[in-house]
Design a protein around this nucleic acid. Sequence first.
DNA 1: CATTCAGTTCCACATAGTGAAACTTAATTC
DNA 2: GAATTAAGTTTCACTATGTGGAACTGAATG
Lengths: 264, 264
Amino acid sequence: MAAQRPSGDGTIAKALDVLDLVAGMQRPVRFAEVLAQVSTPKATLYRLFQTLTAQGMLQYDVDRQTYAPGLRLVRLAHSAWRQSSLAPIARPFIDKLAEKAGETIHLAQMDNGQVLYVDKRNAASPIEMFSQAGKVGPGYCTGVGKAMLAFMSQEPQSQAIARQSYYAYTAHTLTSPQALEAELADIRAEGFAYDREEHEPGIICIAAPILSNGTRVMGALSITTSVQRSSLKELQKLKPDLLETAERIAEAATTWQFPEPEKG
Amino acid sequence: MAAQRPSGDGTIAKALDVLDLVAGMQRPVRFAEVLAQVSTPKATLYRLFQTLTAQGMLQYDVDRQTYAPGLRLVRLAHSAWRQSSLAPIARPFIDKLAEKAGETIHLAQMDNGQVLYVDKRNAASPIEMFSQAGKVGPGYCTGVGKAMLAFMSQEPQSQAIARQSYYAYTAHTLTSPQALEAELADIRAEGFAYDREEHEPGIICIAAPILSNGTRVMGALSITTSVQRSSLKELQKLKPDLLETAERIAEAATTWQFPEPEKG
DNA sequence: CATTCAGTTCCACATAGTGAAACTTAATTC
DNA sequence: GAATTAAGTTTCACTATGTGGAACTGAATG
């Protein structure tokens, strides 16, 4: 789906690049810090900051003289989450799965080659909106990431594969496109992915893609646990439940219509 | 703080106006629907949609031919929520208050004259009423809205007052700027606001502003319940707890520093 | 088959964004 | 406390970028 985002062309693209950059720094940043990261001339960047701040997309802290992503984004994201994510549709199914599995459930979608978590059900604690939703993770070393990559169509897939960082988070992380592609072939064959402590030591999961009409990737669903609590063998027992839930969600998503004024 | 957002000047502003519009419709919309709402010529609007879609700020549904706010917003909002909202800082305080009060707690901030909810803690027995992070509400008829309006500085305040809709949600809603201003004077005197079923029938709340250095409005905090469960008189008993919590949050917020590489 | 309406492309035009450089502050150094 | 550096802000001629009227496509409707 989303090919590499056109970066740099158009004023809007530039503005969003800046936003991404600021957001990516994970803390309020000074103007000069950002300036150092980009090739944009000072004056241009400056005006961009001004505009974005005036628009509420950035928030300026007068005392500390720092910029951070603004609250307008939170407001916009609320709509995005409700309308464009699988979360609202998947909710009842995930609740049920969480209850049955007694483990943490993740619902993720692809955003520009990365895994974007849109919902999470914790074994015990309730949902916390943007503290969980909106998080991003790597595609090549998470269960949901691999599940989605495996079923993406040709070009987006190869682009995404090429753009992974292949940083070795753990000793089990797949660290090359080749290794990843081999794994993806398996996953495609099985319709199902594992995370064998590839992203975090001690953390394992099973994941399934959510496919519309059995082909187009809409997202992925995973059940996560730790090697202390459980094991891959144990987790596998939940495979049928996971697959069924994923299918149910896909079904619901394709059927789902927003309440529209009935036509004619 | 945020004066009326400059609308229309600059390409970025235009793009964001469109985003707001789409988000505001609360469901995926067709191109023509949006076109009908704006004065922008067709070709211009069209290109804007294309750009925003390519950027992941809008998501296009090929089958239904509709646009909705895109997932990139969710990702950006995650950062915004963590860095620019009071929620992460306020969290422990709110948890404590929620436990003690046994009622629903809302944490809100101002966004362009409207109330933006940034966190919510549900009581064990959930009142039927959905408001989550990112949701917006009216300023003139909610506890948190009035609490914030009351303590805003001159110009932003009068602008905000002028821009409320004054729609009569219930029989108790304040429906004129004059009525609101009178109410705000009381609130300013008391440091404290009520919602007397002004937004939803049967729903009442007490709210307190969160003021940095006792002056600048950072947000507001409320305890909500229903007339069936409780009463304003009952709620008032929680006033000291609410005020103390608000103060604690203000304190924490002004102190709070993001983990920065120590300088020097 | 004609008509309408939603969506898309085209292109001359000018607005809006660009960026080198100069300027103003504030913080540091000598 | 004058000199130096760095961060932030303003200016302005230039042109890249976005604009929008109009014409085109193509599907749906009568």
